[in-house]
Amino acid sequence: MPTNEPASRHLTAELRPVRHRGLRKALHLTVLTLGEATGLGGPSIADLVVLRRDTGLPVIRTKAGALDEADALLRAIQADLDRLSVEEFLTEWGHLGD
């Protein structure tokens, strides 16, 4: 991949909802609702996933956080995908997948 091209030509980022079942789903929804209502935040609502455009395979996957955190994280990553090369992007954000 040429280093002068923006990473967004090769990578894309998206939020993928966290999926729970049964009691975990009810508990997650309760904690999420209480956290958002009190302003304290809550459990992660989604995973942020950075994918290769050519294969669709994930390069980075991490918890995105509560509603406002997830939105801010996605916007920051999308801005850097447009601004940085793939190598620079992975240097900057690669630690999220650890």
Results as ranks from 00 to 15, higher is better:
His28Pro: 13
Leu73Met: 14
Gly65Tyr: 03
Ser8Phe: 14
Glu14Ala: 12
Pro58Val: 06
Ala70Gly: 13
Ala26Phe: 11
Ala79Glu: 12
Pro6Met: 00
Arg53Asp: 04
Ser44Arg: 04
Thr38Arg: 13
His20Glu: 06
Leu90Thr: 11
Gly35Pro: 15
Arg61Phe: 00
Thr62Gly: 12
Arg83Glu: 09
Gly39Leu: 02
Ala26Cys: 11
Arg53Tyr: 06
Thr33Cys: 06
Asp80Phe: 03
His20Trp: 04
Thr30Phe: 05
Pro43Trp: 03
Thr62Val: 15
Ala79Trp: 00
Ala37His: 12
Arg83Phe: 05
Gly39Thr: 05
Glu87His: 04
Phe89Val: 00
Pro6Lys: 01
Gly22Phe: 08
Asp71Trp: 14
Gln78His: 10
Lys25Gln: 10
Thr55Gly: 12
Asp68His: 11
Leu67Val: 06
Leu15Asn: 12
Lys63Arg: 13
Arg52Gln: 05
Val49Tyr: 15
Lys25Val: 07
Ala64Val: 13
Asp68Leu: 14
Arg21Ser: 10
Leu90Gly: 03
Gly56Lys: 02
Leu11Lys: 02
Ser44Thr: 02
Leu34Asn: 09
Ser44Phe: 08
Thr62His: 04
His10Asp: 05
Gly41Pro: 10
Glu69Cys: 08
Val31Arg: 09
Leu67Gln: 03
Asp47Tyr: 15
Asp71Thr: 15
Lys25Arg: 06
Pro17Leu: 12
Leu23Met: 13
Ser85Gln: 01
Arg21His: 08
Leu73Cys: 04
Ala66His: 01
Asp71Asn: 09
Val31Asn: 04
Val59Ile: 04
Gly41Val: 01
Arg75Val: 08
Ile77Pro: 15
Leu84Met: 07
Ser8His: 14
Leu57Ser: 09
Pro6Phe: 00
Leu34Pro: 10
Lys63Ile: 02
Ile77Asn: 12
Arg19Ile: 07
Gly39Met: 02
Thr30Cys: 08
Arg75Gln: 14
Gly22Thr: 03
Gly65Ser: 04
Val31Thr: 07
Glu69Met: 13
Gly41Lys: 01
Thr12Arg: 07
Gly56Arg: 00
Gly42Arg: 00
His28Asn: 11
Glu14Ser: 09
Arg16Cys: 09
His20Arg: 12
Ile77Val: 14
Pro58Ala: 02
Leu51Ile: 14
